[in-house]
Design a binder for these strands. Structure first.
Length: 403
RNA sequence: GCGCAGAUGGCGGAGUGGUCAAUCGCAUCAGACUGUAAAUCUGACGCCUUCGGGCUUCGCAGGUUCGAAUCCUGCUCUGCGCACCA
């Protein structure tokens, strides 16, 4: 029993973890059985949480399972300032409305991973909005310009003669003050958060508190090996549909399979070692990738959904059959009355996924449109439609026509 | 405040009076090959098109000219240098 717990603590402190400061101190407290307050801050800046950001949430869950108190800080105030950590450009202010909108979606997503009822949820406007200029100045006195400029993303911008505003330099101070306000023992964040987390330690000391221990989680690269970014489209969101998650996972670059197993699934490290060996010896990594895709979907939608997603995928791509649960593509029947049918262009446009008619026309002319297993290359060609035909638009978008 | 430089398509970056819807690279999309991987090859890549062509773009607003992304004036924004620093 004791052994088991120590094993859990070891995993907690090592798997997917980049840095722990101060490791010895934290380990001792954990083994000693103290109930720790584990802080995690989220700025509701975007609508979706992806599996990269989720790494930290799963860490929190480990803490939770060991009986510690999770303090979730919703950065309703800081979100409006904008964390410069991952940005090489100045960030705009978010409006109150944006923040509120984003916020609505956040807790349910987090709830997929954590037991929110057991956590303490706080909004940092609670204390940050009350600071007056004198207090802010005191806070600001903790850091020098030089220290702020040490951050790579600031120094790079400095080199490039890009603007760096005061406001952005304020961010670590606020995040640090959060730690004071909730008396954090531990704070977790992504590896890109190191600077902010360290700032928390300094700020706490200034306010007479023991500095928190900090843990940074490993970053997950995007599916294509570049930085994970929603605008690159190389991201799996935890709320994506099972089929979609499965499909996206299958586009992962082969070299990243072991890394993804480790960071985004609960596969044991033993198994992952085995997978790595297998990858090196056998020819086609596709099977392993399917296991990976399955494990990811299972984590967020359960084993049943994962199985179904896998079968759909097999049907659709390996056996080239059309699965039954394609999204519907509704065509308006009054179109028939007027023109006697639908042109290929009408059908593609009805799917509502093209930016412009020109784009749709191009796609068709280049052979990217298929209906009832026939390619139609002439955008103006009238296609006989009865309803129920499977439509393929481009590489990976499928619909079933409904009239 | 003064002086200098710059602002071009998702990004980088050409173009400095007509041949510019704008070289090129990246990203993106489609096709071939595949394992919805990578690499490679082909094509597309402002909007609309009856495929002839039409329409709106090069920070913003005016002007010169038969004709402007390109010249002139004003404005806005950004960077650099100087000044200010009780």
């Amino acid at each position: 029993m004791m052994e088991n717990k120590n094993g859990q603590i070891e995993t907690l402190l090592s798997r997917n973890i980049e840095d722990v400061i101060d490791r010895a101190h934290l380990q001792k407290r954990l083994i000693g059985g103290e109930k720790l307050r584990v802080k995690f801050g989220i700025d509701p800046t975007g609508a979706n949480i992806h599996i990269g950001r989720a790494v930290a949430l799963w860490k929190l869950r480990e803490f939770q399972e060991l009986g510690h108190k999770i303090v979730l800080i919703i950065g309703d105030f800081t979100a409006q300032i904008g964390d410069p950590s991952d940005k090489l450009k100045k960030r705009p202010f978010l409006s109150r409305a944006d923040v509120k909108e984003n916020l609505k979606n956040y807790l349910p997503q987090i709830g997929k991973i954590l037991d929110i009822k057991k956590a303490e949820v706080r909004y940092n406007s609670e204390w940050l909005a009350k600071l007056d200029l004198r207090e802010i100045s005191e806070l600001a006195d903790i850091f020098s310009f030089q220290q702020i400029l040490e951050r790579r993303n600031f120094s790079e911008r400095w080199e490039k003669h890009e603007e760096i505003s005061y406001r952005e330099g304020m961010y670590p101070l606020m995040q640090g003050y959060d730690s004071v306000a909730v008396k954090a023992d531990v704070e977790i964040g992504g590896a890109d958060q190191l600077f902010n987390l360290l700032a928390g330690r300094k700020v706490q000391e200034r306010y007479g508190q023991k500095p928190q221990d900090i843990m940074t989680t490993a970053m997950v690269v995007g599916l294509d090996g570049r930085k994970m970014s929603t605008s690159w489209g190389n991201v799996i969101n935890i709320e994506d549909e099972p089929d979609n998650q499965f499909g996206k996972a299958m586009t992962l670059r082969d070299e990243l399979i072991p890394e993804y197993f480790e960071k985004t699934t609960d596969a044991s490290m033993e198994d992952i070692r085995k997978f790595e060996k297998k990858l090196k010896s056998s020819g086609n990594p596709k099977e392993l990738k399917e296991l990976l895709a399955f494990a990811i979907v299972k984590r967020y939608h359960g084993a049943g959904a994962a199985q179904a997603a896998r079968e759909n995928f097999e049907k659709l791509f390996s056996r080239k059959e059309m699965p039954d649960n394609l999204p519907e593509l509704k065509l308006k029947t009054d179109g028939i009355l007027k023109t006697g049918g639908f042109s290929a262009l009408d059908i593609v446009l009805a799917a509502g996924i093209m930016k412009s008619r020109s784009e749709a026309r191009r796609l068709i002319e280049q052979g990217g449109f298929e209906i009832a297993e026939k390619v139609v290359k002439n955008a103006a060609e009238m296609v006989r439609v009865r309803g129920g035909e499977a439509v393929k638009i481009g590489k990976k978008r499928f619909f079933r026509i409904r009239i």
